[in-house]
Design a protein around this nucleic acid. Structure first.
Lengths: 79, 79
DNA sequence: AAACGAATATCTGAATTTAAGATAACTTAT
DNA sequence: ATAAGTTATCTTAAATTCAGATATTCGTTT
């Protein structure tokens, strides 16, 4: 199994997550607060230093109000 | 952010992953081999002791030939 | 029913990730 | 130029994950 961090797909994923947070008009502090985490948690995530698991991804989708399937489909095209 | 391990969604996810592996007619040893991992890796994963990140999930979908979107949609319904 | 082989589960340090919390480094507006 | 808001980085402790071995479970065959 490929090491997730640093892969093209992981980079694409976090780029999309950042985009979605910004579209939602949230700062890292605000998102962190809704997640019950520190701002540095979001920063680590968005700088690609931490993996995002499937369950977390769904939680992010719910908070940031994006369609997880849609994002996944876009990631599928990244190799 | 909720601790993934032990959540209903994570349990549902691994149940589906096991189902998909079995449908594909693969043993843990065979899946592990295709992943370039040990059998104990697959066992840990399938016993819910290890998180599955989004990128890994897509890799599993490719090997086990399932539609990641479809699985994700089913997980969405689990709370 | 005992024994065998195939499949899965569990254990144990060691290595790697992740987290908390603080602080530093941008940004942008005044 | 400064202040406020935002994001990035650092450190050390804590938690996860891994390799590899071993144990257990489950079917089959005799």
């Amino acid at each position: 199994m490929v090491k997730t961090l640093g892969t093209a797909r992981h980079k694409a994923l976090i780029a999309l997550l950042i985009e979605k947070r910004e579209t939602a008009g949230l700062t890292q502090v605000e998102l962190a607060s809704r997640l019950g985490e520190y701002q540095s948690f979001v920063a680590r995530l968005e700088s690609g230093q931490r993996r995002v698991d499937v369950v977390e991804f769904l939680e992010l989708a719910s908070i940031l109000e994006f369609e997880p399937d849609a994002i996944l489909s876009r990631l599928l095209k990244v190799h």
